[in-house]
Design a protein around this nucleic acid. Structure first.
Ligand SMILES: [Mn+2]
Ligand SMILES: [Mn+2]
Ligand SMILES: [Zn+2]
Ligand SMILES: [Zn+2]
Lengths: 149, 149
DNA sequence: TAGGAGATTAGAATAGTTCTAAACTTAGAT
DNA sequence: ATCTAAGTTTAGAACTATTCTAATCTCCTA
């Protein structure tokens, strides 16, 4: 059970994705995509920048922000903000979905929309268009099956 | 149907509330409470400050922040943050409740917890402790009964 | 009616992000 | 291959919301 690489893409595939989204595939953008599209899990801009520094790339912080914003505008990334932090986090899961926040670690987990049912009985003035839901609680790794507390 | 004053309190009552919560009822704090507990609806610190300036009180911005934080710590106010804005908003509704955001106006409405049912079928690793829910959509004021679109 | 805790204040500091404007790179058009 | 214009990267300044600092002020109490 190794740290699942999610979806690994070759440099070629990343370049195609960028071009397909109308974004020039520069060296910096390809590198950042390698991280945010393949490796990272809900990273912040700061984390992207730190990763770049450690991985043979000196990319300015401005470029990190520029690139992340470009990817968001191109529809390859979503920008999210949660109440427990001031930092924007970037999400490569483009499905509509919710999140679970582990209070202890601060780690976020994707929750499929279908796993949650929300029904609201509101006055008819309220025309609902969408829900932002953050579930918070405790994430218990390594839980044995049928474990009593 | 006038702009319902929610719950109007006399200066005496405010002083009692403050003292009861272990907070010294200074002039500045009483004034700010008059606004946040009686008049305002999900205000930001900036709005509290602007209101003070217009209402015969020159209160420094630092005091506005100090007071709001004091009221939060004393349990008279809740501090909320939503994804559509960087500013903290203060909520005098101390019941657990959700919010509806009108996309057009940016206005927030309280939604009673009982009006919404949330049920999540998650893996047992996820031990749910609470939900942060923001419903967004369109608020249609002055809706006639049985209105077709 | 002093002493001292606590409150207020102006302004500096901070954090995350965006802006500015100059330098660099690239993609075409010759 | 060369030129040019458009697009990209960059360092650092600017910006916004909030907190901190440290001096002054207020108010309770002995
Ligand atoms: Mn953005
Ligand atoms: Mn606070
Ligand atoms: Zn996600
Ligand atoms: Zn509320």
């Amino acid at each position: 059970m190794k740290p699942s690489k999610k979806h690994c893409l070759t440099q070629q595939e990343i370049e195609e994705q960028l071009r397909g989204a109308g974004v020039q595939p520069t060296l910096q953008r390809i590198l950042i995509c390698q991280f945010v599209l393949c490796e990272a899990d809900h990273p912040t801009a700061e984390e992207v920048h730190l990763w770049a520094e450690k991985n043979l790339a000196k990319i300015s912080l401005a470029t990190v922000y520029n690139t992340l914003n470009t990817l968001v505008d191109a529809g390859l990334l979503k920008e999210l903000k949660f109440p427990h932090s001031d930092k924007v986090i970037y999400d490569d899961n483009m499905e509509e979905h919710y999140h679970f926040l582990d209070r202890k670690s601060g780690k976020l987990f994707d929750i499929a929309k279908g796993d949650v049912k929300i029904s609201a009985q509101l006055a008819k003035q309220f025309q609902i268009q969408g829900f932002d839901l953050l579930i918070n609680g405790n994430y218990q790794r390594d839980l044995k099956k049928g474990g009593s507390l």
